[in-house]
Simulated assay, not measured.
Amino acid sequence: MNRENLLQFFKQLKPLQRVVIQAHDFPDHDAISSAYGLSFILQSLGMKTLIVYNGEIDRISLSNMVEWLNIPVVHCSKANLNANDHIITVDGCIGENNVTDLPGDEIAVIDHHTVTAPNSLWFADIRPNYGATATIIFEYYQMLKIDMPMKVATALLVGLNIDTANLTRGFCNADLKAFITFNQIADLDIVNKICRNSLIHYELTNFEDTCKLVKQSEGIATVLLKEPCAKNMLGVLADFLLSVNEFDVVIVAIENKGALQLSLRSECPKVNVGHLLRKTLNDTRMGFGGGHSHMAGGIVLADNTQHFMEHDNAHFAPFVKEIKALRSLEAAF
């Protein structure tokens, strides 16, 4: 991405009555912080913005971030969107199953996932090698020489820290540069408070259930949770299991309206869980999913859960079979 292309896109936005910035459904810290950072840029250039999302903000740390930093984000049902609105999707891509098609014209995508943007968009900036969309937004500030407010840097640093697990997974040199700059501007006490306070009391039962129900085979840990669990909590539990020395691939799932909601993690170099989900679910039309080599999420559609579980017991056979096949290739080389 170069400065001229970015400026040309912002010039196209100038005549609009407002610019809607949409985070992916059930947003995470990176999605909200990136939308917030982009919103400030556009406002500094004289535009009106509105940050929206669908689903729920279901992590206490994200709720705290929004409240403590006064981030102006609203649920799409309360946004009075209409067909004349123009929408920039941040940390997601229109056409993906985790981005609701809202009223209005989707004009741009800014994302760090492996996605394919529609050709009709005015602008697309997709960088799968980046650890967080927050880093892309950071580079916009650098290109345009816009001073970043403390609150924006605080939010973006939280987004970068959580998406990269404090720069321990899936990061690149650009993320390191952003991390250094954010640390010089952000309120580090607030950053640490947001990141530390990541659970509420009743969620401890999810960890208890995970420990009781986890199964393992050749380093692959699998769990089908029985108790209610927030969608974004699955990733927290998957990260928790990946910290166990004997596990290098993790599958955590919960039933949701007959479907299976999934979160996967990998630290095995040959097991790219983003590719694994796309091959096992998208290509077979048994569901949908995607993400990065080290972390991914997806859904097995209700009509196909019998391939992954029997009665109340999950075996995840299609995933396990593919993981073992990938490992055998690793051994062969």
Score class of each variant (00 low, 15 high):
residue 25 D to K: 06
residue 183 N to C: 05
residue 95 G to F: 01
residue 222 T to A: 06
residue 12 Q to L: 15
residue 266 S to P: 03
residue 289 G to K: 00
residue 54 N to Q: 08
residue 154 T to M: 09
residue 77 S to W: 05
residue 145 K to V: 01
residue 199 L to E: 09
residue 43 Q to T: 07
residue 239 D to S: 08
residue 196 R to E: 14
residue 107 I to K: 11
residue 305 T to A: 00
residue 3 R to K: 14
residue 146 I to F: 12
residue 241 L to E: 04
residue 48 K to T: 08
residue 260 L to Q: 06
residue 300 V to L: 00
residue 75 H to G: 11
residue 156 L to I: 07
residue 213 L to N: 12
residue 114 T to C: 09
residue 183 N to S: 14
residue 151 K to Q: 05
residue 154 T to N: 02
residue 226 K to N: 08
residue 253 A to Q: 04
residue 56 E to L: 07
residue 22 Q to V: 00
residue 19 V to Q: 00
residue 20 V to P: 04
residue 262 L to Q: 10
residue 192 N to Y: 04
residue 74 V to K: 12
residue 189 D to F: 02
residue 250 V to M: 14
residue 247 F to E: 11
residue 173 N to P: 06
residue 203 E to V: 01
residue 287 G to P: 08
residue 221 A to P: 11
residue 324 K to L: 06
residue 9 F to I: 07
residue 18 R to A: 04
residue 166 N to H: 09
residue 77 S to N: 14
residue 163 D to K: 00
residue 295 M to N: 10
residue 262 L to S: 10
residue 81 L to I: 14
residue 116 T to P: 00
residue 156 L to F: 11
residue 319 F to V: 01
residue 47 M to R: 03
residue 124 A to S: 15
residue 94 I to Q: 07
residue 253 A to T: 01
residue 205 T to P: 02
residue 120 S to N: 14
residue 83 A to T: 14
residue 302 A to F: 07
residue 140 Y to R: 08
residue 160 L to G: 09
residue 230 A to V: 00
residue 116 T to F: 05
residue 287 G to Q: 11
residue 93 C to E: 03
residue 118 P to D: 03
residue 101 D to C: 04
residue 105 D to Q: 11
residue 328 S to P: 03
residue 50 L to K: 15
residue 236 V to E: 15
residue 7 L to V: 13
residue 292 H to F: 02
residue 272 N to V: 01
residue 56 E to F: 06
residue 98 N to M: 10
residue 132 A to L: 13
residue 331 A to M: 07
residue 280 T to R: 10
residue 62 L to S: 13
residue 248 D to N: 13
residue 316 F to A: 00
residue 55 G to A: 03
residue 3 R to V: 07
residue 210 T to I: 11
residue 49 T to G: 06
residue 51 I to Q: 00
residue 135 T to C: 04
residue 204 L to D: 00
residue 310 E to C: 06
residue 195 C to S: 14
residue 6 L to I: 10
residue 264 L to F: 14
residue 185 I to P: 01
residue 306 Q to D: 15
residue 30 D to F: 10
residue 269 P to G: 05
residue 112 H to K: 14
residue 43 Q to K: 14
residue 163 D to E: 12
residue 229 C to R: 00
residue 266 S to M: 07
residue 284 T to Y: 10
residue 158 V to H: 05
residue 136 I to T: 12
residue 140 Y to V: 02
residue 324 K to D: 02
residue 225 L to Q: 09
residue 94 I to D: 03
residue 4 E to Q: 15
residue 127 R to V: 12
residue 57 I to T: 09
residue 252 V to E: 04
residue 14 K to C: 01
residue 316 F to Q: 01
residue 290 G to L: 08
residue 31 A to F: 02
residue 170 G to L: 07
residue 76 C to E: 13
residue 32 I to N: 11
residue 262 L to I: 12
residue 169 R to G: 04
residue 244 V to F: 14
residue 221 A to L: 01
residue 323 I to E: 01
residue 153 A to E: 12
residue 327 R to A: 07
residue 314 A to T: 05
